[in-house]
Nucleic acid binder design. Structure first.
Lengths: 170, 170
DNA sequence: CAAGATTGACACATCAATCTTG
DNA sequence: CAAGATTGATGTGTCAATCTTG
């Protein structure tokens, strides 16, 4: 097996994946920035909090759910706190930890931003795929995350009920 | 049809795609930074030039092949030029355009970086997938790019031979 | 006036260093 | 000393403005 280079099929697949990975963030960010004044990552953080018990999550847990590093998350939470969307409190059970909690204003922000964001996701990702491809992509995503995220930090990977979702609770 | 929210299947698929899009760039960047001193985007730019006729491409064309905006590409080319990997020259045929050209040092850089990069792509993307999933992902990528990149700027989309690849010419 | 490209200001991500608590 | 988290410095991307040529 030639592991040094890619064959034509592998290369074609890889090139398309690279293009998707380059283009998708820009599409999500520009829609959310324009219509709701937040980046996609900020929205995603707010959405994860909106689905958590008591709208609260420890920083480490939130970082896992959003596939982010702790420093990145810390900076983002600071900005969201300044804007009044999130509060930070020391964790009662562990003095080292801190809890991020969605405020009422933060909740309103996610609720307001969600419909437009969901439309963008549908238009750019869900709608172009057949039902079969949707299932395939889910399995492919799982396979890739096995390697990209060996710790399996995405909650959904270990929770068949998949209670984690990209939308505020209904 | 409920277009306002995602159902469980759609949400699971979307969450995994988001995780992949968040994690993959970091994996590619850190390997290439560590082993070759370039970001993945820089590597990709050099690789695209290495496959072009005369190792030369107009900025607009290079931006299309790398799914980048012109300002982003312009900044990156300036940095690569400073490091001696690329040269910029005014285009003879169109006074507004400029040509980016890979230097000998740039060629050496891609050639040196490629094997490690290809190993990373195999380990994280190609190897975890079955041959069937590889084909599926290629089709899925094409479907998504139809929407994400309506202009179909990726050369491969219009060129069945798919001569564009993520590796220096052999 | 549009197309090709560049620039500068600003925002965000990353990395290493740091601080505090278990 | 490790785990949880934060901070500051640096590098890169984005957006709007600009410049030049067709």
């Amino acid at each position: 097996v030639e592991t040094r280079w890619l064959n034509a099929d592998e290369r074609a697949t890889w090139l398309r994946l690279v293009a998707v990975v380059e283009l998708l963030p820009g599409v999500l960010d520009s829609q959310l920035r324009r219509d709701a004044g937040v980046t996609h990552f900020e929205y995603f953080v707010l959405a994860m909090l909106s689905e958590a018990t008591d709208h609260t999550l420890r920083m480490t847990s939130l970082a896992q759910r959003t596939s982010a590093t702790l420093p990145r998350l810390s900076h983002v939470i600071r900005r969201l706190e300044r804007r009044g969307f999130v509060e930070r409190n020391p964790c009662p059970e562990d003095g080292r930890a801190s809890n991020a909690r969605l405020t009422a204003a933060g909740w309103d922000e996610v609720v307001a931003a969600a419909p437009g964001h969901v439309r963008t996701v549908r238009r750019n990702v869900l709608d172009p795929l057949t039902p079969a491809q949707l299932t395939q992509l889910r399995r492919i995503g799982e396979a890739l995350l096995t390697q990209l995220d060996p710790e399996g930090r995405m909650t959904g990977l270990y929770n068949p009920a998949d209670t984690v979702g990209d939308a505020p609770a209904r």
